[in-house]
Structure formats: C-alpha cells, structure tokens
Amino acid sequence: MAVTRPAPDAGAARRPVRARSLWLLLALAVLAAAMLASVAWGSRIVGLADVAAALGGADETIEQAAVTKRVPRTLLAVLVGAALGLSGAVMQGVTRNPLADPGILGVNMGASLAVVCGMVFFGLTSPSGYIWVAIGGAAAAAVFVYTVGSLGRGGATPLKLALAGAATSAAFSSLVTAVVMPRNDVAGSFRMWQIGGVGGASFDGVVRVLPFLAVGLVLSLMSARALNSLALGDDLAAGLGERVALVRATAGLGAVLLCGAATAAAGPIMFVGLVVPHMCRLLIGVDHRWLLPFSALLGAALLTVADVVGRVVARPAEVEVGIVTALIGAPVFIYIVRRQKVRAL
C-alpha cells in the first residue's frame, strides 16, 4: 500500500519561519532585560521595587530619582542602537558589501564634519539644526564614497568601497580636528560628543530625533523585498521587475536618515552597523524581510547592554558607549576582513 508523504518543502518552509519567530521573541526578551538593567544599574544599583515605583510616577527617593533620570538615556540607547543596526544591514544590502557600515564607509564622519562646521562657521546652536545638518553631511559622504568606489574597472566592489570609505573617514576626521582645534569654546563639548555616548539624553532630545528615525525605518523596511532581489545582481533584479536605481536611492535614503539622526543625537558610534547584521545572518539567514527588523532589535539590545557595561565597569565614573562598542567591533571587523569570501555578500 502506498504511503502518502507530506510535501517535503511544506515542513521546511514552516520550520524556518517558526525558528525565526522564536529568535525574534528571544531578541525582544533580551532587549526588555537590557532596558530593565539600564534603568536599574549604574553608579547606584536600584531595586525592582524602586524601579516599578519610579516608572509609575514616583520620585521621592534618591533611587527613584536615579531611575527617572535613566529612562530617557535608555530610550535614546534603544533608538540609536536600532537605527545603527538597521542602517548597517541596509547599507550592506544596497552595496552587496559585507564590510559596509556607517562608520567604515565614512558616513558617520561626514555627519560629524557637517555638525562641527555648522557650529564653528555658522553659529549653529539649535538641536533640531544639528539633525538636519548631520543628515546632509551623512548623505554627502555616502554619495561621495559610493562615487569614488564605483570608479574604474568592476564598479563598486566591496574592497574598493571599504578603501574609499576608510580614506574618506580618515580625511574627514583630520578636517574635524583642524576645524575644532582653534576654537576652545566648542572643543570640549564636541570632543565628548565625538566619542559617542547617550549620557546627556533627555526626553526633548528623544522627541526631536524620533520623526527622522521613523521615516528612515519606514523607508528601510519598505525596501526589504527589493533588497532580496538586489542580492541576485543588478541584471537579475532588473529582470524581476525591480527599478535598481530607485531601490538603491530609497533604501540609501532610509539608511542615511537613520545614521545621520543617530549621529546627531549620540555622536559617531562605530561598528554597531557592522557587527549586528552579521550576527543576525547567522541566526535567521539572509532574507531582508526578517533581517532588517531583527537587526533593529539586536542593535538596540547591543547598544543598551554596551551602555550598561560602560556604567558598571568604571563606577562611579563611566566609559562612553562609543568606546565599548569599538572594543567589541574591532575584533569582529578583523575577523570579517580575514574571511575567504569577503569580496561578495
């Protein structure tokens, strides 16, 4: 008697979706735990009862006041980490470059140079103005690096883009130093901002940056299916009906909005956009419909944890989150560069 067997790909199609959903739930749980640790741990450890009372509106004890002060810092760390993780995943998809990252490609330094030029030469003092200027600088740097990396035979290869980004980032960093050095009135505050951190967060700052991050998030997630087509190559993507130039422009704009606004809010934090997408691919694969939201969640969790670590290891002082992420990201970057298949994503 013939035995009826289930379709071989039906279970295979369900299992990855189930596994990816479990990973997403786990990422949400890790993020929630990191946020709880962020409001409870620091120079003063706060108990769960005081955390609950402070989140409920109480502000009567020193511990509850500490929790109230840490809430906007936690929210900013979540938003900036999500923005950097998502923008890194989008940039890697747009360029098909496993080394793409807002820091490595010079986008963060482009935003930094634009902000410092606005402060020094044009007297820019408005926090909202910082965001617009940072986004403009990030966009200009992204276009410049992609244009330079596209010159010559073979177009925009991963190696050429990485070299162009590294050279541009170094040049912009030198220009930032040259612009700031004669101005002692802005050197101190800008130096702390340039390290990258979320210590000066406020609810007003979070609200100002939120609309830019929301637009960047929407544009990036809307490009997920098209990025899957781009991974097959421009010719195949065009054959599947994708407008390659439009897809790159839309996704690139979303990534620039995300990293520009994040840089304006917290400074040029490095390596989050590089490390997080690679971690996510190991867990859930290369489908951008899953990769992009998972990169946002894991980026938020990573930056929040890094901020908590920076506050705990040097109590009562703290290590800025930009230094912690650099310590984590630099070895990962070296590992990725040494891999055999670094030339293609």
Score class of each variant (00 low, 15 high):
G81E: 05
A82E: 01
A82T: 03
A83W: 00
A83G: 04
L86W: 00
G88N: 04
G88I: 02
A89H: 03
A89M: 02
A89N: 04
A89K: 01
V90F: 01
V90N: 03
M91F: 09
V94A: 00
T95C: 13
R96H: 06
N97S: 06
P98G: 09
P98W: 01
P98Y: 05
D101C: 07
P102W: 02
G103A: 08
L105C: 08
G106Q: 02
G106T: 02
N108E: 08
M109Q: 15
A111E: 08
L113V: 11
L113D: 05
A114S: 11
A114E: 03
V115E: 03
V116D: 08
C117L: 15
M119T: 14
M119A: 14
T125N: 14
T125D: 14
S126G: 12
S126I: 10
P127A: 10
P127R: 07
S128C: 12
G129D: 06
G129Q: 05
Y130I: 12
I131G: 02
W132S: 14
A134V: 06
I135E: 00
G137T: 04
A138F: 02
A139D: 00
A140L: 14
A140Q: 02
A142Y: 08
A142L: 11
V143G: 09
V143S: 05
V145Q: 00
V145S: 01
Y146R: 07
T147F: 12
T147M: 14
T147W: 13
T147S: 14
V148N: 03
G149R: 01
S150T: 12
S150P: 08
S150M: 07
G152K: 04
G152T: 09
G152Y: 05
G152I: 09
R153S: 11
G154Q: 09
G154D: 06
G155N: 10
T157F: 05
T157E: 05
P158E: 05
L159P: 08
K160G: 07
K160I: 10
A162S: 13
L163T: 10
G165Y: 00
G165P: 04
T168N: 08
T168P: 00
S169H: 01
A170V: 11
A170C: 10
A170G: 08
A170Y: 11
A171D: 09
F172M: 12
S173C: 07
S173H: 06
T177Y: 12
T177L: 14
T177C: 07
T177H: 12
A178E: 10
V180F: 06
V180Q: 02
V180M: 04
V186P: 07
V186L: 10
G188C: 11
S189Y: 13
R191L: 15
M192N: 15
W193M: 10
W193S: 07
Q194S: 14
Q194Y: 15
I195Q: 10
G196W: 05
G199H: 12
G199Q: 13
G200F: 06
G200H: 08
S202P: 07
G205N: 12
R208S: 13
V209R: 03
